[in-house]
Design a protein around this nucleic acid. Structure first.
Lengths: 225, 225
DNA sequence: GAATGTTTGCACAAACTGTGCACAAACCGT
DNA sequence: ACGGTTTGTGCACAGTTTGTGCAAACATTC
């Protein structure tokens, strides 16, 4: 199920959007204001951000630019019908599409689906600015690369691809080393340790995402508190 | 996505240009001053350079000539409406087109698109003065040719055509030798070694671009630090 | 067919990664 | 609070992968 972050300063608008989207199998998270939205984007993975540009404190533009400084998450702006220049401004700041208010349900859904289709199904995973790119064999946080060894890279990928799912040490060995591996003991633990250390160095709060499940194994959490 | 290098001494003009171009799916890089621009052109691949001729320290003309001494990247000059002779001078120094200030968005986009269209879809790749020309079967750095053997040539081409992407040894063998090749062992390594040595001789910093991905294969990076 | 140039891969050295022990720290149930 | 169990950490050695010199095999040219 796709996750959508709704950002607006009015609770009524958030509820309305959620009402439209939820029955169509989208998981909505509501953020009232830019600060809250930023916290969400920094700690969770969303498939789309729906962003009203008319907000007090921090404007939608500012938020859009802030998000773009570390993430490629698709952004759709909500603008008033009249402000043509707002649309242009938003697109220039990195938004992917826009919807003018007032809008109807069909248009909203169509634009969301179109944008999701556009996202190439590359083997790239991103959460809170941390990007795992299989093709480039590269993990990076906000643009700066994190050097990993092959085993480390695949282990992170395996966990990242299945957020929330617990993997036992044996499972990880099977998935990363293969069926006939004789690897055992605290080897996995060592790799986890190395991965944590390297990602921690980059500034990403890895200790809140890559968790130990006591007595079982490890898991990656996208959503942290 | 096409990459455009913007060169001006005024930050406001850089921002304005970027604001015009970014929403039209161009990736803009801003260079404030000729020195900075030169560093970019020497280390990255751009599809177009947009160059203001009115700059302190080094003039746009000088920069244009400097770039042309080692690269064929398309250059568009920005000139003041009045200086007709500047336009002639610029074109003589190797610029491909010009735009007079003040300009509007449509004109800018039209000229950029026209210039990109004009660029025949040649199998020519260029980055930082290193030029790979399939038609002429030639690799050269700043005009001086680098003699490569066929296998070496195609290997460089394959990597150069997919900057950032990692290729395993098996993949490279498949791509360059074909499906029924029995080539194996350290053959690829030997070719990489030879390629590195030959390109290094030319003065191009190949060791920062043609990288070993430990345990996986090789990749070519256009953007180096 | 001799000369020249290209491709391939061995053998060794160098660089880097994987592994798991030993002990400390954290955790859990009672 | 206590003992048993599980996980974290420092570290060293074994193992793997890559770089390099060199030469034989192969291909092309004249």
């Amino acid at each position: 199920m796709q996750k959508i972050l709704l950002v607006d300063d009015e609770r009524r608008m958030l509820d309305l959007l959620s009402l439209y989207l939820t029955p169509h199998q989208y998981a909505c998270t509501k953020a009232q204001g830019a600060q809250e939205a930023l916290r969400y984007v920094e700690t969770q993975a969303f498939d789309i951000v729906l962003l009203d540009i008319m907000m007090p404190e921090m404007s939608g533009f500012e938020l859009c630019a802030k998000i773009r400084s570390f993430s490629d998450v698709p952004i759709i702006m909500l603008t008033a019908r009249e402000q043509q220049e707002d649309i242009v401004k938003g697109l220039k700041l990195g938004a992917d599409d826009y919807i003018t208010k007032p809008f109807n349900e069909e248009e909203l859904l169509a634009r969301i689906e179109a944008l999701l289709r556009r996202q190439a199904p590359k083997n790239i995973i991103e959460v809170g600015g941390l990007k795992w790119n299989e093709e480039r064999f590269e993990l990076s946080f906000r643009g700066t690369p994190i050097k990993l060894t092959p085993k480390e890279f695949f282990m992170v990928g395996q966990l990242l691809k299945n957020p929330g799912k617990v993997f036992s040490r044996d499972q990880l060995i099977l998935l990363i080393w293969g069926y006939d591996s004789e690897t055992e003991g605290r080897t996995i633990d060592s790799h986890v340790r190395n991965v944590r250390e390297k990602i921690r160095q980059s500034g990403f709060p890895v200790d809140k995402h890559l968790l130990t499940v006591w007595g079982v194994g490890y898991k990656w959490l996208n959503d942290i508190e």
